[in-house]
C-alpha cells in the first residue's frame, strides 16, 4: 500500500470527500480535459455500438445486453459483459467505450461502498443515481474528444421509503431519466424501443405484468431483432451458443440467469 493518506493529517476533519475525490487527490483517476467545441480536429463521433435493454416486469427489473464488442467494423470479442453488478441491488449496463465504462463501473462500485463504510449508512437511491450522473459529467471532456462516450442504464431496487424497482437511463452528458416501463441504449436501441413500445401497448400483457419467462423471451426477441439490422449487436449466436447476459434485480438482490435457463427459453419461445 502506498504512503499513509492525508486522512492521518492532524488537521483532518471528517470524510467530506466522496470516493472519486479521494482518487483524484491521489492521482488515481484520469481527469478529463475541458469540453471544447467538437469542431476542428475532434469531430464528435458517437460510438455506442451495442444493444442494452432493461424492462420492469412482475418480478423486478430485467437487464439484458448482447455480448459483442466491436472496433470500427471489426468484431473483437464475442463474450463481453456489458451488464455489471455495482452492489447487492444495483446494475449498470453500458453502451459505449468499454475502457471508460468499466472504469466508471469500478469507481461507482467503490463509491457506494466507501460511502457506506465511512458514513455508516447506505447511500440513498437518489444519491447513487446522482453519483453516476456526476461521473458521466466529469467524463464529458473525453466524450467531446471522441474517445470516451458512455451511455448507461442504471437499475436498482429501492428498499427504503417506497420499496420498488427503479430504472434510469442517461445521456452522455449525465442527464438522468427515470422510466416507468423500459429503457434501451446503444446502436441497436431504436429497434428494441420499437418492440418494447409495441409489446407494452398492444402485446398480450403490459410489460410490468409479465412473468419471468415471458420477460426473458421478449428481451431475447428484442436483442435478436436489433442484431438483424445492426452489425454491432451480437444478439443470439446460434452456432456458438453464446447467449445475451441477463440479470434480474428484485427485493432479494441480483440474480444472474444461468445460460441453460436462457437457452431453454430461447428454444421454446424464440428460435
Amino acid at each position: 500500500m502506498d504512503k499513509p493518506p492525508l486522512a492521518l493529517d492532524p488537521n483532518f476533519s471528517g470524510a467530506s470527500e466522496d470516493f472519486p475525490a479521494v482518487l483524484r487527490r491521489k492521482g488515481l483517476l484520469q481527469i478529463a480535459p475541458e469540453p471544447t467545441a467538437a469542431a476542428g480536429h475532434h469531430p464528435f463521433v458517437p460510438t455506442e455500438s451495442t444493444t442494452i435493454l432493461a424492462l420492469k416486469f412482475a418480478g423486478g427489473v430485467l437487464v439484458a445486453g448482447d455480448r459483442r464488442a466491436t472496433a470500427g467494423n471489426t468484431v473483437v470479442y464475442d463474450r463481453a459483459d456489458k451488464v455489471l453488478e455495482i452492489d447487492r441491488h444495483s446494475i449498470m449496463a453500458i453502451a459505449g467505450v468499454p475502457a471508460t465504462a468499466w472504469e466508471m463501473a469500478r469507481v461507482l462500485e467503490h463509491s457506494f461502498q466507501y460511502f457506506r463504510r465511512t458514513q455508516l449508512q447506505e447511500m440513498s437511491v437518489d444519491g447513487k443515481v446522482r453519483a453516476l450522473s456526476k461521473l458521466l459529467r466529469d467524463n464529458f471532456g473525453f466524450v467531446m474528444q471522441g474517445v470516451g462516450v458512455v451511455v448507461p442504464i442504471f437499475a436498482t431496487y429501492d428498499g427504503n421509503s417506497k420499496p420498488e424497482a427503479r430504472l434510469y437511463f442517461y445521456d452522455a452528458m449525465g442527464a438522468q431519466f427515470e422510466v416507468t416501463d423500459y429503457a434501451a441504449t446503444g446502436s441497436g436501441s431504436p429497434a428494441v424501443r420499437g418492440i418494447l413500445y409495441y409489446e407494452n401497448n398492444w402485446g398480450g400483457k403490459k410489460l410490468q405484468q409479465l412473468n419471468e419467462d415471458e420477460a426473458i423471451a421478449i428481451a431475447l426477441r428484442a436483442l435478436d431483432t436489433a442484431a438483424e439490422a445492426d452489425t454491432s449487436t451480437g444478439g443470439v449466436d446460434r452456432s456458438g451458443k453464446i447467449f445475451p447476459l441477463i440479470k434480474i434485480v428484485s427485493r432479494d438482490g441480483i440474480n444472474t440467469l444461468p445460460e441453460e435457463k436462457i437457452a431453454a427459453v430461447f428454444r421454446q419461445n424464440v428460435a
Partner: peptide, 29 residues
Amino acid sequence: IERLRMAAIELASTEGFTRSAADVSLRRL
C-alpha cells in the same frame, strides 16, 4: 478512532480499486 478508521478505509479502498480486493490485506494495512 474516527481518523484511524477513515485512514484504514481510504487505504483499503484505494488499494482495492487500483489493484483488486484480493490485494487488500490486514497484515499490510
